[in-house]
């Protein structure tokens, strides 16, 4: 569950050390617990916060950033990044809602997913084949894919004509919102993939030391293609789910989502320089953000404070990380 380290610790004191370090590497869960305690005890929020309804609500609100953050974790452990996820969300949602009347609900949704996966894959392919930094490739894609959204929608919002679409967004499984169930299910699957499969090990290897990974026989190109495609598909899925919840799609959906997602993943302990990170941490990062928004909302603090606190937390995590792991590596973008 802790972030993995490429090198094996050699010292004898490693056990305690490793434990302290793993906690230090995932301070986000300590923060999540502190938040839960704080809002459960605080007068003004304690009457409402710790109820099943509110907690499920937090989980539901976490779904849209969360699903993308899960995919972004893989890409960022690879030492890559994807800024185009917000635009992919909007394109997939617009296609899925806009083509319902022509194609039918399910085929339109599948088309949205397929387009998202294809564009994600395209990002990965260009990054690998041309050697251009993924930050630049996906910065271009962020603008370009948003352009595609506007070309397709002509700047219009679409409303889901099929009521079953919006009903799905409101539906529950055993009292839990279906969308939240989907998020949790994907999180569990991807946690297993990252910790227990060859693809997961390769993800750390490629991000930790790409040349070594190549020498060890990892097919980096195919590997990156898989992770970027997966991220594109997850971003598209997030867009679809958000549009089922709204019963509509808007061309501006997902603007600045890329920044929220990256914030959540970094809060969860994944490093931009690659090789480190975990799904558990990312889920903590997403929940940490949403609990803060929810609790502060209940406290009737101006919502704007959340932005200030989040930004400060992001920087604080970085300082903490530097303190606990020493000098740290200087990446290309450091």
């Amino acid at each position: 569950m802790s972030g993995r380290v490429a090198s094996v610790p050699t010292a004898e004191r490693s056990r305690l050390n490793a434990w302290v370090r793993s906690l230090a590497r995932q301070p986000i869960w300590a923060f999540v617990i502190a938040e839960l305690l704080f809002f459960s005890l605080m007068p003004g929020t304690r009457e409402f916060f710790f109820s099943t309804g509110n907690l499920l609500n937090i989980l539901l609100q976490s779904t849209f950033i969360g699903i993308i953050a899960l995919g972004m974790t893989f890409v960022m452990i690879n030492a890559e990044i994807d800024l185009s996820v917000g635009a992919i969300m909007a394109l997939a949602a617009s296609l899925s809602v806009g083509l319902q009347s022509q194609l039918g609900m399910i085929p339109a949704a599948l088309l949205g997913l397929a387009v998202g996966a294809a564009l994600g894959g395209l990002n990965g392919l260009i990054t690998y084949k041309t050697g251009v930094d993924s930050f630049i490739v996906t910065l271009g894609a962020m603008l370009g894919i948003r352009g595609l959204v506007f070309v397709y929608t002509n700047q219009e919002s679409y409303f889901a004509l099929n009521f079953a679409y919006a009903d799905f967004g409101m539906s529950q499984i055993a009292g839990v919102p279906t969308l939240a169930v989907i998020f949790v299910a994907i999180a569990i699957v991807l946690h297993v993939v990252l910790t227990n499969t060859r693809h997961g090990r390769d993800t750390y290897a490629v991000g930790g030391n790409r040349d070594a990974a190549v020498n060890a026989g990892v097919r980096v190109g195919r590997h990156l293609l898989i992770n970027f495609t997966m991220l594109g598909a997850l971003a598209a899925l997030s867009g679809l789910l958000l549009s089922t919840q709204m019963g509509a799609s808007t061309p501006n959906m997902g603007t600045v989502y890329e920044l929220w997602v990256i914030t959540a993943v970094v809060l969860g302990g994944t490093k931009l320089t690659g090789g480190h990170g975990s799904i558990v941490g990312t889920v903590g990062g997403v929940l940490g953000i949403q609990i803060l928004r929810n609790g502060m909302n209940l406290m009737q603090v101006q919502a704007y404070w959340v932005l200030v606190i989040l930004g400060a937390m992001l920087i604080a995590v970085l300082i903490l990380d530097k303190r606990t792991t020493g000098a740290g590596r200087d990446g290309a973008r450091a």
């Binding site: 920044l259 931009l272 704007y304 930004g311 970085l318 530097k322 990446g331 973008r333 450091a334």
Partner: peptide, 18 residues
């Protein structure tokens, strides 16, 4: 403090917008 500039300025993006 030699922190990663991408994350620091991403954090400041949020702080300053707030």
């Amino acid at each position: 403090l030699r922190l990663n500039s991408l994350i620091v300025t991403l954090g400041m993006l949020s702080v300053l917008q707030g």
